[in-house]
């Protein structure tokens, strides 16, 4: 494992923990898209089914379990415990527009036409666009709390770091996986606009608000 891969995993973990802590400490999930969180729970569930079939390392297995557990905990906090603070009115992105094309594409373009492999591929496609309901929510309300911005930055950085990891692996091992690579590029591109706002505003101590 190279440093980019490790930093990517770490950044992903930090994002997930920031979100959980934000909701827990403020007793509120306002500004957070429950729909994106449902998509992430689906992504982890369909990708990590190999927990039961393929052992890679203790690190790998523990991270998978942590990601899955945290994502279900987040969904529970939003739709269960702190439901009263959830922004139903603004979180209106139609997730079937992401789920259905990802599923169709996973059936058409995959490494191997087997159930586990199709589910893995589906999770990769779905993850690349799963943040859209959250970005849609931010654009609808026109602003994001600073802690939510940190969450989005850590979550976006994770796939960017993975891209560097794949570049590294390509040159050092000749390894590449086009499905993950192209989806990873799309995923990172979707964050670009946000990255720009984050660096130009949030890092200078201002709250992230969109121009009217």
């Amino acid at each position: 494992m190279n440093v980019f891969r490790f930093l990517g995993d770490l950044s992903h973990l930090v994002a997930i923990v920031i979100l959980l802590l934000k909701i827990w400490k403020t007793r509120s999930c306002s500004g957070i898209s429950g729909r994106s969180q449902i998509l992430f729970a689906i992504v982890f569930t369909t990708r990590y089914l190999d927990l039961f079939s393929n052992f890679i390392s203790v690190y790998n297995t523990s991270m998978k379990i942590v990601y899955i557990t945290c994502s279900y905990a987040t969904v529970y906090l939003i739709y269960g415990k702190f439901k009263a603070t959830y922004d139903f009115n603004h979180d209106t992105f139609r997730i079937e527009f992401l789920l259905v094309p990802s599923a169709i594409l996973a059936f058409l373009v995959n490494h191997d036409f087997s159930p586990l492999e199709i589910l893995w591929t589906f999770s990769i496609y779905l993850e690349s666009v799963a943040i859209l309901p959250q970005l849609f929510l931010v654009s609808k309300t026109g602003e994001a709390e600073t802690i939510t911005s940190h969450y989005l930055f850590a979550l976006g950085s994770y796939r960017l770091l993975y891209l560097l990891n794949w570049l590294w692996r390509y040159f050092s091992q000749g390894f590449y996986d086009l499905i993950a690579l192209l989806s990873g590029i799309l995923q990172t591109v979707l964050y670009c606009d946000f990255f720009y706002l984050y660096i130009s505003k949030v890092l200078k101590g201002k709250k992230l608000s969109l121009p009217a």
Partner: peptide
């Protein structure tokens, strides 16, 4: 040899 189906990443 690296097999992409191993999916050793997260």
């Amino acid at each position: 040899e690296y097999n992409v189906y191993d999916h050793d990443e997260l």
